[in-house]
Computed example of a mutant assay.
Amino acid sequence: MKKLFTFVAFAVVLMSGQAFAQLKVGYTNADVILSQLPEAKTIEAELKAYNAQLSKELETKQAEFEKKYKEYAEGVQKGTFTPVIREAKEKELQSLQQNLQEFQQKAQADSQKKQQDLLAPVFDKIQKAIDDIAKAENFDFIFSTDVAGGAPILLFAKEEHNITNKVITKLGGTPIPTDKK
Score class of each variant (00 low, 15 high):
K3P: 07
L4Y: 09
F5E: 13
F5C: 10
F7A: 14
V8I: 14
V8E: 11
A11D: 11
A11V: 15
V12A: 14
M15R: 15
S16F: 13
G17H: 08
Q18C: 14
G26Q: 03
T28F: 02
D31Y: 00
V32I: 13
A40Y: 06
I43P: 10
I43L: 12
E44R: 15
E44W: 10
A45M: 13
E46V: 08
E46W: 04
E46A: 15
E46M: 11
L47F: 09
K48L: 15
N51D: 13
N51G: 12
A52S: 13
A52I: 13
K56G: 06
E57N: 07
L58F: 13
E59D: 15
E59Y: 11
T60A: 12
T60W: 03
K61C: 04
Q62Y: 10
E64N: 09
E64V: 13
F65L: 08
F65D: 03
K67W: 04
E71G: 11
E71I: 07
A73I: 09
E74Q: 15
G79S: 07
F81G: 04
T82H: 08
P83I: 05
R86C: 07
A88N: 09
K89S: 06
E92V: 06
Q94S: 04
L96I: 02
Q97T: 01
Q97K: 09
Q97L: 09
Q98M: 06
Q98F: 05
N99V: 02
Q101T: 06
E102F: 05
Q104G: 08
Q104A: 10
Q108G: 12
A109N: 03
D110R: 02
Q112H: 03
Q115E: 14
Q115I: 05
D117I: 03
D117W: 05
D117R: 02
L118N: 05
L119R: 01
A120L: 07
F123M: 00
F123S: 00
D124P: 01
K125C: 07
K128M: 12
K128D: 11
A129T: 06
D131Y: 07
D132T: 13
D132V: 01
A134L: 06
A136H: 05
E137K: 15
N138H: 14
N138K: 14
F141D: 01
F143M: 08
T145N: 01
D146H: 00
V147W: 03
V147G: 01
G149E: 07
G149M: 04
A151M: 05
P152H: 01
I153C: 04
I153T: 04
I153L: 13
L155E: 06
L155H: 04
K158A: 07
E159T: 09
E159L: 01
E160I: 10
H161M: 05
N162L: 02
N162E: 00
T164Q: 00
I168W: 00
K170R: 12
L171V: 06
L171H: 04
G172W: 05
T174V: 10
I176W: 00
P177S: 11
T178H: 06
D179Y: 12
K181V: 15
